[in-house]
Design a protein around this nucleic acid. Sequence first.
RNA 1: GGCCCCAUGGUCAAGCGGUUAAGACACCGCCCUUUCACGGCGGUAACCCGGGUUCGAGUCCCGGUGGGGUCACCA
Length: 499
Amino acid sequence: MEGGNILEEVRLRFAPSPTGYLHIGGLRTALYNYLFAKHNNGKMILRIEDTDRTRFVEGAIENLIESLRWAGIKYDEGVFVEDGKIVQRGDHGPYIQSERLDIYKKYVDELIEKGDAYYCFCSKERLDKVREEQKIKGLIPKYDGFCRSLSLEEARERIANGEEYVVRLKLPPNRDIKFEDIIRGPITINTNDIDDQVLLKSDGYPTYHMAVVVDDHLMGITHIVRGEEWLPSTPKHVYLYEVLGWEKPIYVHLPTVLNKDRKKLSKRHGDVSVEDFRRKGYLPEGLINYLALVGWSPEDNEEIFTMEELIEKFSFDRVSKTGGIFDIEKLNWVNGHHIRRYDLDKLTNLCIPYLKEAGFVDDKFVEESFDWIKKMVETVQESLSNLSEIAEKVDIFFNNKVKPENEEALAMLKEEHVPSILKAFREELEQVEEIDEEFAKGIMRKIQKSTGVKGKKLFMPTRIALTGNSHGPELVSIIYLLGKENIISRLDYVEENYL
RNA sequence: GGCCCCAUGGUCAAGCGGUUAAGACACCGCCCUUUCACGGCGGUAACCCGGGUUCGAGUCCCGGUGGGGUCACCA
């Protein structure tokens, strides 16, 4: 179990904190981890970093996992949900950090033994005070090393007396720590610019810095792919690998996904959780495809990809260094592509919840008229950029009290030749029991013949009489989907109210 | 403020010493469609600034400027 780096296969991990929902930026990090792992026939691990008990949110783990599942990120190892229960699978567990406390303790003790870490008894109050004073003097807020030279004997005595303590990393002064980032190249940071980081908190939990290093090593992680906000603390990790005598992994710091104002994507500017996008009717295929493109570009000029294609094409040397703005317009365009290529049955099933929510259909209707709904979805499929738009696109099919959308539309209905069109329409309808596709295709031609009206003067008023709108799906589809009864009802209503 | 990272059209981005500086989204035209959408064609629009290096810099180096990140017993 020790020394995971003898493993030859590529092993990557996504390690979120269960503090809420999966963030769009987090999804992209998970995606890049996944794409790289799968591209190299490696493994991807999901680890839960819950060392901050104060921020733990009930249900967050389940939520995170559900979002990943929905997005199609099929990790191999770690934490899963089965039958509503959290389970763990893999040979390097546990994969939930709060279940690994004794492991961290062991390495913290080792560091103390070797003099690479020390006990610190400074109170929060003292620390705050020190920082405040430093700020006033214009200095960098940093731990002042008050407990750094405490003897081990004295420290142990104080602990035995029940004093609260933390363990801090003992960084050597003025030393350049160097490491290589796959995306950014060589990076050097001097230890004078970093704090003696707390490794073990007073509640016995490790901090992120201790836990990542121990876990990534023990779990045999070969590549650490994470957001660039971690870049400044990487030297602490590098130093830990060094004093622990472990081989450090390969670092890959991803550019940030930004808001329109070039700040890190945040809730203030709209939706940021994967769940939000799911609810709005984005397909996992669309979201994933778009997200892959924020920060990475393929060699060719293609832009529409399936997950499989992304896996095949992905590489870190085509990931950019610059943060990219999350552009909802482009997401819409990408998502629209995926909607258009979606299987119609699947798409229909995905649309039904939105139709129910709008009050257009209920369970009974869905059961009896699935094919009709499917046909309706098909007529608007190409115009959708996300599923929630379905309601506004098809509302014309569900209300026989036709209302012209504006003055212009009303004016077109009031033109003097319109009554003759509607009359001809009725006459044609009387010829059949019910409208079939054949009939729907031919009716306008017949009306044209009998009334002598053609072109826009024929089609526009008919469209408006039937839907109230001057634009929408093909008239043939509208006529077919509406059916005889609805059409007659609409003609009645229009004649009574607008002519 | 210290440290770190970054810098090509409004946005995503290609480019890796010699190009008329790709492509996509958005926008604007035109075509297709007797509407809309889809699709097709075309157009507007970019190398942050200043020094070097070089026969030659968007591309390499240095310095500015700008933006972002980070400086917790949060991750």
